Simulated scan of single mutants.
Amino acid sequence: MSAENDLLVIALVVLALLIALGWYLSYSAARLDRLHAKVEGAMSVLDAQLVRRAEASLELATSGALDPASSLFLADAASGAIRRRTEHPIGDDPLDGQHFAGREGVESDLSSALATVLSDDQQAVLRGNDGDPVALEALERVEASALRVQLARQFHNDAVAQVRRVRAKTVVRVFRLAGHAALPDLVDFDDRLPGAGA
């Protein structure tokens, strides 16, 4: 009788351990799925903020508030960012956008153009007492959108770092909890604010 009780206890312990392992694996897979969804959402937000920044920059360039050379320089960089976005949109698969469609170069160029054209001195001129209200509004939109781009990129990269940390765990790798999902990449480009120096 005692041997049968011992076997029953062992079977119950093994069953409890298997249930606990199954629950942990299920929890880990669901968490990883949520983190991947967070990365997808963050990429969409970053994409939208970049489009807003490019549109605001183009609006400032065509407002007549800047000298012709600066206007042309800024309009060229903003148009390049808009064109690159529409030529290579994020695909049907949201995780396709993880590689940022190779837009880092044009986004860095726009940041550099904004930093060059909107030096602190130029911003002071635009904000002067006799400043054009349309130009002032365009400048404020550029500054606000540039700040939102910085925040969106940071949020995206934080989400990617969380996914990478979880996917590096042994249990995730051994049980292939990530499935066939691609490992998301960090988005790295120059996102300095206007007036931050050329």
Rank of each mutant, 00 (worst) to 15 (best):
A113K: 06
Q49I: 05
L15V: 13
L32I: 09
S63W: 12
V174E: 08
L193M: 09
D132H: 10
L72M: 07
A159Q: 02
D190F: 04
G97C: 00
A65W: 06
N157F: 10
R192D: 08
D158M: 07
L50N: 02
V149E: 01
P194M: 03
Q49L: 10
S44R: 15
L18R: 04
G80S: 06
A115Y: 01
L21S: 11
H99S: 10
A42C: 11
D190K: 05
K169F: 12
Q150H: 11
M1N: 06
P194E: 01
L18P: 03
A56Q: 05
V106P: 00
E40C: 11
D120A: 15
A196M: 09
A69V: 14
V174H: 08
K169P: 00
L35Y: 08
D188V: 15
I82C: 03
R173C: 05
L8T: 08
Y24E: 12
A178M: 00
G22I: 03
K38S: 13
L7N: 07
D92E: 13
Q162R: 10
S108D: 09
G64E: 06
A113L: 11
E140Q: 13
R53N: 07
T86V: 15
G179Q: 04
S2Q: 06
A178Q: 03
V149S: 01
L193S: 04
R165C: 02
L7C: 02
L139A: 01
E55G: 02
M43R: 11
D120L: 13
N129G: 10
F73L: 09
P89S: 08
Y27I: 08
P89D: 05
A48S: 15
V142G: 00
F175L: 08
A196F: 06
V134L: 12
A65E: 02
R84N: 10
H99K: 10
S70V: 09
D130E: 14
L12K: 04
A37C: 09
T86M: 12
S119N: 11
K38N: 07
G105T: 15
G64I: 10
D158T: 13
V174K: 07
A42H: 03
H88W: 11
V142Q: 00
S57I: 10
L74A: 05
R165Q: 09
L15F: 12
G179K: 03
R53Q: 12
S57C: 07
K38L: 08
D185Y: 03
V9F: 13
F100T: 00
L32S: 01
H180V: 15
L72C: 03
A198V: 05
V117G: 00
V142D: 01
D67M: 08
D47R: 13
V166M: 12
A65F: 10
L183C: 00
D185F: 03
A152V: 04
D96G: 14
L35M: 14
E143W: 02
A37S: 15
P68W: 01
G179P: 01
L18I: 14
A152K: 01
D109F: 14
R153V: 00
I10A: 14
Q49N: 13
E140C: 03
A78T: 04
A115C: 14
M1K: 08
A161K: 12
P194Q: 04
R164C: 05
R153H: 01
D191W: 05
A30R: 05
V187P: 02
Q162M: 11
E55M: 08
